[in-house]
């Protein structure tokens, strides 16, 4: 069993682990020949199935195992994220699977030039100019190697064979979301509002906040929350509803004609004032805030609404080539109340 790769996009990898970490502490990392999958299945809340193309993060990637060259690991996201953070200024970083005292580890070897730290580490006392000169001559070429070890657990193929992506029915509405950070700042206010309202009444109900999310096939997204003291809703208009690709839908053009979203197109209006044509879900405000933290990756997000059933978010990571995109899939189930 062998795994070794050069990390070429440390920033993306760090942000990715940080946002995944907010949903659950442990991830199932599946290293395959062509892609890398991160899966988080928390006991409660949102599941994430992330499929990354190898180029999105790694370079010179090599994986070998007895089981079709696939390695399954259980990775603690917190320690991995911390290890990656120390590599943010690295000139190069390498990750590999090793063993130490019979414990499997992901070892992160980070090479940095010491010039960044030497101001504080070796105060020169003299003028700043002298210090810089000193760097240029000597310190800039000095390399520091840091090794971070993240203990992991190797998962047998049988263990993970029973894990499948959730099955959902065809969505009623699919829509491209506005920038997630914008969405998050408003949803956070909503959650705060609900908590502020609940404080005055009984304390028991205060812990849960239910956001109502809805969208229609006319470019509208609605987020709302209701408390005793108020009801508030924000409506985004002029968003895009991507067209379905006949090659991706069962039965091709026939399938599209019968697709729920085609029916939803007949209902509702583009100004979002009509009460018809909305597919809505009820989700947990706090959980939603955590999901929104993926916004820092800055990708395009398509939301699929299955009315009163589930909300599925496809977060596409921005890539240079744009050929085989990496996608993070979030499954958020709807609460009945």
């Amino acid at each position: 069993m062998r795994f070794k790769a050069q990390i070429h996009n440390i920033h993306t990898f760090t942000k990715l682990t940080a946002s995944l970490n907010s949903l659950g502490p442990l991830a199932w990392l599946k290293l395959g020949d062509e892609q890398v999958c991160f899966t988080i299945i928390p006991e409660q809340g949102t599941q994430v199935w992330a499929v990354l193309s190898i180029d999105a993060i790694f370079d010179t990637y090599a994986v070998q195992s007895a089981a079709n060259n696939v390695i399954n690991l259980e990775v603690p996201l917190g320690p991995l994220n911390r290890a990656l953070k120390s590599a943010l200024n690295a000139t190069s970083a390498q990750i590999r699977l090793t063993k130490k005292d019979n414990i499997p580890l992901l070892a992160l070897t980070i090479a940095t030039t010491s010039s960044n730290n030497s101001y504080s580490a070796f105060p020169t006392g003299g003028s700043r100019d002298d210090g810089t000169m000193f760097h240029d001559q000597f310190a800039a070429n000095r390399e520091t190697i840091i090794t971070q070890e993240v203990p992991v657990r190797v998962l047998a193929p049988d263990t993970v064979s029973g894990l499948h992506e959730p099955q959902t029915r065809e969505p009623d509405v699919h829509i491209i979301l506005p920038p997630l950070m914008q969405l998050k700042s408003i949803s956070d206010r909503f959650t705060k509002l609900a908590l502020a309202g609940a404080k005055t009444s009984s304390g028991a109900a205060a812990t849960r906040t239910r956001l109502d999310m809805a969208a229609n096939m006319h470019g509208c997204l609605r987020m709302s929350i209701k408390t005793d003291a108020m009801s508030i809703s924000s409506v985004w208009t002029d968003l895009a509803n991507p067209e379905l690709d006949p090659s991706q839908v069962a039965n091709g053009d026939m399938g599209i004609a019968e697709h729920p979203s085609t029916r939803m197109k007949l209902l509702g209006s583009a100004d979002g004032r009509s009460e018809e044509g909305w597919a809505s879900v009820r989700i947990d405000g706090k959980d939603w805030g955590k999901v929104m933290s993926v916004g820092r990756l800055g990708g395009r997000v398509i939301a699929c609404f299955c009315h009163e059933h589930a909300l599925i978010l496809y977060v596409y990571l921005p890539t240079d080539g744009g050929e085989d995109e990496s996608v993070l899939t979030y499954y958020i189930s709807s609460y009945s109340a």
Binding site: D228, A229, S233, S234, V235, L239
Partner: peptide, 10 residues
């Protein structure tokens, strides 16, 4: 812009 927030205060 394209966001409209409506708040109904009881």
């Amino acid at each position: 812009a394209t966001i409209r927030t409506t708040c109904n205060l009881t």
